[in-house]
Simulated scan of single mutants.
Amino acid sequence: MHYGLIDLRLFVAIAELKNLTRGAERVHLAPSSASHRIRLLEASIGTPLLLREARGVKLTRAGELLLRHARQVFAQLEQMHADLSPYAKGVRGHVRLWANTHATHTFLPDSLSAFLRCYPQVSITLEEHTSPEVVMAVVRGEVEVGVVAESVEGVDVELIPYRADRLVLITPADHPLAGRTSTSFVEVLDFPFVMLHSGSAIHTFTMNAAAALGRHLEVRIQVRSFEAVCRMVSAGVGLGMVPGSAIPDDTTRSSLAILELQESWAQRDLKVCVKNRELLSGFAASLVESLTGKPLT
């Protein structure tokens, strides 16, 4: 296939405006040139992309598919420019950091803010993954530094203590369980839950914990942050399972009951994960020291 970014930008403009002439104007092309490019694009792909109508154009099924992919291409290009721009501005270092949901939403914002104040010449890419995914990425060398709550058996990595925390169950203040101080996980599986979004590390962990008991968790609603979980639970939507450190110290807390979970896996001590600390690049080593408070000796 022979086409370029100009052709894709033109196609997206025409598709969004539903008009070839206005689409051509958006990308600063003459209508005749735009029409020629679209014909060549269709010939290159091997199928019609637009249906010409009296008052504009309409996408074919292939055109709808191309539009979705073209938008993804331009989104990736924008992300590439965003990732590269710090270097053009004089940033001299970059560290990729993967972490589980717990660390990403609780402790890392303050930790990374403190690190970046000390190292303004460094940029960080932070991605959220499950702990096993983080460990394996460190082993493969995809990232130098990870933050996890569990390791992978048989994998040789260094785990350095970062923060101690524990998962707790939260219920509305007027819930039948609210008068208790602790509970087992199996005792609450008949109640609906508020969860972080599907694909988040803690969502995967919780669903697997229920499956290990031969049960299915009823998820009433999924949200994007621990704060939203707490607010939904306080409003009576369902139960939630969150790190104790994620419960806000505000009016929401007063409308929640907090129960200790009796499971051993509820203890979620976070650790910094590296393949070999002595072989870390300079800024990655500095980040590990900042997170753990333990200088390399």
Rank of each mutant, 00 (worst) to 15 (best):
H129M: 07
R117V: 10
V27E: 09
G154E: 02
T206N: 08
R37Y: 10
G90F: 08
G4I: 09
A257M: 11
A285M: 10
C118S: 13
Q76S: 15
P120H: 04
E64K: 13
V229M: 06
L49M: 01
A114Y: 13
R71D: 05
H2N: 12
G90E: 00
S234T: 01
R215D: 05
R277E: 04
V12P: 00
L77N: 07
I160V: 08
V274S: 02
R166E: 15
V148R: 02
L259S: 08
D269I: 07
P172Y: 02
L51M: 10
C273H: 05
F185L: 07
R224V: 10
V138C: 07
S111A: 13
A70W: 12
H105I: 00
E133R: 13
A209Y: 09
H203P: 00
Q72S: 14
S234D: 01
R180H: 15
A211D: 05
G238R: 04
L49F: 02
E187W: 14
R9M: 13
T181L: 11
T252K: 10
G141L: 08
E144H: 06
R22L: 15
I221N: 08
T297Y: 12
W265N: 09
A99W: 06
T183H: 14
V12D: 01
L40K: 14
S151Y: 11
P31M: 08
T21K: 13
L20I: 14
V288E: 03
N100F: 04
L97Q: 04
G93V: 01
A82P: 03
L213Y: 08
E153L: 12
Y119L: 00
E278T: 07
V188N: 09
K18D: 09
D174E: 15
G244C: 07
E278G: 12
L8T: 03
A211M: 12
M207H: 06
Y119R: 02
D7Y: 14
A54I: 12
V274A: 03
H105Y: 09
E127D: 07
A235N: 09
A70N: 03
L291G: 04
L77K: 10
L287I: 01
